[in-house]
Nucleic acid binder design. Structure first.
Length: 381
RNA sequence: GCACAGUCUUACACAAAG
């Protein structure tokens, strides 16, 4: 039965609700009563399939099905609401949960604090954190990572560092997430060398740098214009047995493209393809962007066709990048065609898409067209 | 009491300035 729950959860994680229900059917057929875990997995599947309303419905039905939703069930939905920009609804559900006698734990609190930090509502995040302490819920290392991340997003690296010291004083051991967060903060403000020192500190404290740590450093080098050092670091970690991932490739491709050394870039792409690496959508987007910036929109189109052929679904980034490429060549009408086609692909009303077109029309001095589009955009919300 | 479910860190697009 647990195996079936696990299976159901796996399908939920890839948002295949149809398969979830199939497994649920099997569970029932075999005479097992579905439990809270079963339903929570199903709830997760529904959430990830963008059917949060259905998930909420299931939540209310669970009682009648003889299974009380617990804090995990609620958290699954609350977190999804938060991540889809519906924090108000999430907080409503949080209150609702407490009314139903389900006690919040550190995980729901973390989810909400994270959402507040991401929404740049630092003050609300802190007061929620305080409430959590008052309620006797102990923060954990995840909580502190969320807060540190929030601080550095506010540009408060010093405070973030102080919080780190405080944590250590409290006897909480920083994990690699915390170190990675701090390293990224340092890189973002251009202090790549300090970030590298942080990696040393991390290792003296008994944590090995993982691929995320190295990706952060490589990204730091690339963004500060030292792609060579990033490439060296990559070879170094491979030599030490660490597997690069798609983030690594994106970071390096981005760096290489910005050097405009096409020979080296092409060489690297061939090398990766030769190794049998499958590019993901971001990898393609970066190459696409480079082609567009070089005014090679025809090649860009071919690249998009290629990615589709390889089974990689273009994202809204793909389309807006392409649109911007066309606009840069003065082909605003072609850009508009792409924009229109986006609607049928689930990317309706993309703001960047509007911006690109508006910019394109303005550059061509077609202010009237731009105004029409602008009104259309406002009208659609 | 048991564990099959929930939260955190890294990559890509558009303006201006440079």
């Amino acid at each position: 039965f647990k195996d079936l729950n696990m299976l159901l959860n796996s399908f939920g994680c890839i948002s295949r609700v149809d398969l979830c229900f199939a497994v649920l059917g099997d569970i029932l057929k075999m005479g097992y009563p579905p439990n809270c875990v079963t339903y929570t997995s199903l709830v997760k599947g529904l959430c990830l399939a963008a059917k949060v309303e259905k998930a909420l419905e299931l939540l209310t039905k669970m009682d009648r099905l003889g299974c009380k939703p617990n804090v995990v069930t609620y958290t699954t939905i609350i977190d999804n609401l938060c991540k889809n920009g519906r924090r108000d609804k999430a907080i409503e559900l949080f209150v609702d949960m407490k009314c139903k006698g389900v006690s919040p734990d550190v995980v729901v609190c973390n989810s909400l604090i994270d959402s507040l930090c991401r929404g740049n509502e630092w003050h609300n995040a802190v007061s929620f954190f305080q409430e959590m302490l008052d309620a006797g819920i102990h923060p954990d290392v995840v909580t502190f990572n969320i807060l540190i991340h929030g601080l550095f997003k506010e540009g408060k690296i010093q405070e973030a560092n102080r919080l780190l010291e405080l944590i250590i004083q409290l006897g909480i051991k920083p994990n690699s997430f915390i170190y990675n967060t701090l390293m990224d903060a340092l890189c973002t403000v251009g202090r790549v060398d300090d970030a590298r020192q942080m990696l040393v500190l991390m290792e003296t404290n008994g944590h090995v740098g993982d691929i995320v740590s190295y990706n952060i450093l490589m990204n730091g080098y690339c963004k500060s214009g030292d792609t060579d050092e990033a490439m060296r670091l990559c070879r170094h970690i491979i030599h030490n047995g660490i597997q690069p991932d798609s983030y690594t490739y994106s970071t390096l491709l981005y760096g290489l493209c910005h050097t405009r050394d096409w020979q080296q870039t092409r060489g690297f792409v061939s090398e990766l393809l030769g190794m049998g690496i499958n590019f993901n959508v971001v990898n393609y987007n970066i190459l696409l962007h480079a082609l567009c910036k070089e005014g090679k929109s025809q090649e860009a189109i071919r690249l998009v066709e290629l990615m589709i052929k390889r089974g990689v679904k273009p994202s809204c980034f793909t389309y807006t990048t392409l649109m911007d490429g066309f606009c840069a060549e003065g082909q605003v009408n072609d850009a508009k065609k792409i924009f229109v086609s986006m609607e049928t692909k689930g990317f309706e009303g993309n703001v960047v898409g509007y911006n690109v077109l508006l910019n394109g029309f303005c550059k061509k001095r077609k202010i009237d067209e731009a105004m029409i589009l602008y009104r259309h955009m406002i009208h659609k919300g």
